[in-house]
Design a protein around this nucleic acid. Structure first.
Lengths: 194, 194
DNA sequence: TGCTTTTGTCAACACGCGTTGATATTTGCT
DNA sequence: AGCAAATATCAACGCGTGTTGACAAAAGCA
């Protein structure tokens, strides 16, 4: 047991164990496919504790699928390369140490779970659209964001959820180059030509 | 009861009623969310009949999610506009009279159901890749198909499954124009620059 | 040491699920 | 009409689910 762990109260540590197990299970099997009993088993505790710590399976899922995109602000120098930059950032998030994080949880369940879908729509409205607006102007930001998200979401689905073989084995640079270019076009298209 | 119906044996009609109800339920709620009892209720019959006619829920789902893309062959004249053409075709399928068909069933469940995901991968391998190869050559067809599918799949997710408002309300021509152009680029990029 | 609060276990509940076999009803044929 | 086959109903099974409340062990504090 590390010092770090020792400093945490026991309750905090089990709560975290449950949370981590839940995120992994939800990310791998979706909301329906991950049972409270499975999560409890992974965390090494009794199923009843899951409920005691989080109130309900729904509440646990809500917490496990909560996240912020916080796209780092764009350096003005790379205007014109914002597309590539966004895709690179996207890959970093999905393939970084926190893979299988809240985003995976959300996307895995959103297609068959209305609550998850609603949360995803909210993320889109409150985080994606404003980002795009800051980058390419308010006018037509919703359409731009819609087109960009269509591509990014499909990329995530193909590569991380459905695991289509050619998409899985594509080198990151290739994705950055080509998808980046497509997104750049969506950013650069003048509003009156949308 | 129409003549058409009258000609069908009673068993055939109930089988079809079950099938239609199943496709609707699966398309709307996914594999887990659609229960045999729900489907039976929609079809106006006993749950046991569902099993007697289809063997199991799995088998019913397999049948309800089976489909062929059969993209119409490209007229050589519209080479150079193949991207727009593909997107137009895509929209026709999704928004035509058979909306909520097998494709919706599959996509709605693929994220949280491995069998559905496998079937989607199979469609991609046996129908999408060859189509792209016929259009842009064998070389790099897998990567091209991967990039194109990333965009198309994401469009389907955004517009029909998750229903992101800006994407839902986009006029078809706008989608055809912009997404079509992105796909055209994926088709036109020389193999050695992939 | 004793008492209180925290943390965890256990058994059980009510429910919905897919599926089954026995039984009833309807249909088609002679 | 009467028998046989096709079609549909019903009740029940075993199972897994989320959740609950009663109880047990552990920890913190006087």
């Amino acid at each position: 047991m590390t010092d770090n762990d020792a400093r945490k109260s026991k309750s905090r540590r089990t709560r975290e164990a449950i949370f981590i197990a839940a995120r992994r299970r939800f990310a791998a099997h979706g909301y329906d496919g991950a049972s409270v009993r499975d999560i409890a088993a992974d965390a090494g505790i009794d199923p009843a504790l899951v409920i005691r710590y989080f109130g309900s399976k729904d509440a646990l899922f809500a917490e496990a699928s909560d996240f912020k995109l916080d796209l780092p602000p764009l350096d003005s120098k790379m205007r014109g390369r914002a597309g590539e930059y966004m895709v690179q950032n996207f890959l970093d998030i999905w393939e970084g140490p926190d893979a299988g994080g809240a985003f995976t949880v959300l996307l895995r369940s959103a297609a068959s779970n209305e609550a998850a879908a609603a949360k995803l729509r909210e993320v889109f409205a409150t985080q994606v659209i404003p980002s795009v607006a800051a980058l390419a102007g308010t006018e037509g930001a919703q359409q731009r964001a819609g087109l960009i998200t269509s591509h990014m979401l499909g990329l995530a689905m193909s590569r991380y959820i459905l695991k289509l073989p050619p998409v899985v084995s594509m080198p990151p640079e290739m994705i950055v180059t080509h998808v980046g270019r497509a997104i750049q076009i969506y950013l650069d298209t003048p509003s009156d030509r949308l």
